[in-house]
Design a protein around this nucleic acid. Structure first.
Lengths: 192, 192
DNA sequence: TAATTTAATGGACCAAAGTCCACTAACGCT
DNA sequence: AGCGTTAGTGGACTTTGGTCCATTAAATTA
């Protein structure tokens, strides 16, 4: 992946930084659809082809920029936290929803892009979706070992249901608030 | 809406039929993204502008074509059916999933289009999403009046969760089968 | 220093969605 | 028949994502 080339002109690392920054800024300001590749490369001060040397599509670049910027985005809940898993789930979701206030529109655009480009869909799943699903699956498994959730339940399945719940709201532009986080937790763990 | 014009050249109704048919056929055969407007109008034998006189975008046309063709698509479950609502929900979902085998790809494309075009998103919600959500909400309310589901639960919320569950699978191209329909019903009504 | 290799640049090019427009066709009305 | 009105046609045009390519720049190696 990161094989160091033995000769030839070195890659300009700054160009990558500038492109990611420009992409993120423009997309946040104007919305994904309204930002052209031409505008991004102009803002970054590099040639169009330089962008395409590093990323395959606009969606690739923006996904990369979002992931790089939001390392902390929805950090996995700590499994050694002694509080009830129901509470941890609720807090985790509330956290995710907060980040979606900033990144929701970009994310909707990337989800759309994934539907139109099978190659990007795979990257998006590998780098974004699956890791986040794993976090909730792990939390649910922890709840099971703690006896807070019946062992008969399918943790992976429930993780998918939880994600589906807020994806659906996100894609249909309905609000994602703490109340909804609570409602999801209640559906999973039962009425309190 | 359907104001009859008092004068002027009459609209060629056949052109609309031909356009819908051509769009649906080409999209099913080649996939939404790979079908150009040029190909559709050529297939239908009309001018490009004739299409745009009737629909605003490619997504509009295809939504219209899908809705027209699949009137029967996911017919609402009969609320007077004496079987348990759990069973009705499961059957309804299995039915939806069957139709998604045919229309799933087109639907994914329309969902993507809705993320890129606010005007289309509204039409899509009004004509497709909300009516289908209502069906499940009604079914859940029926379950509540029958005492098969606790009255304390929020039917609209659960309807959203159910839809989210299979949307998520659809958009992430994971299988939608009878087993999944059963799993959703179990999450809603509790383990049998 | 010269040869080789890889990156960056700028601009031409292509396909596709959607707009615009001048022109023609088909209707009702007088 | 002539007029106004609306629909349909074909083609030019704009914008944008993405490709291609010839040329130039920056590095290593011999």
């Amino acid at each position: 992946m990161t094989t160091k080339n033995v000769s030839g002109r070195p890659v300009n690392a700054q160009a990558s930084l500038d492109l990611r920054a420009a992409a993120l800024r423009l997309v946040r300001e104007n919305g994904y659809e309204r930002v052209s590749i031409a505008a991004i490369v102009k803002q970054a001060g590099v040639a169009r082809q330089t962008l395409y040397n590093r990323w395959d599509t606009k969606a690739d670049l923006v996904l990369d920029a979002v992931l790089e910027e939001t390392q902390s985005y929805a950090a996995a809940p700590r499994l050694d936290d002694p509080r009830p898993c129901r509470e941890l789930l609720e807090e985790f979701l509330a956290n995710v929803f907060d980040h979606l206030l900033v990144n929701g529109d970009v994310l909707r655009a990337l989800i759309a892009a994934a539907q139109q480009d099978a190659a990007f869909q795979e990257k998006f799943a590998a780098r974004f979706i699956l890791p986040r699903e794993q976090m909730i699956t792990d939390l649910l498994r922890q709840a099971q070992t703690r006896g807070e959730l019946s062992s008969g339940r399918d943790a992976e399945l429930i993780s998918g249901l939880v994600h589906g719940a807020f994806w659906y709201r996100l894609l249909n532009r309905r609000g994602l608030d703490r109340h909804f986080a609570q409602a999801i937790a209640s559906e999973v763990f039962g009425q309190p």
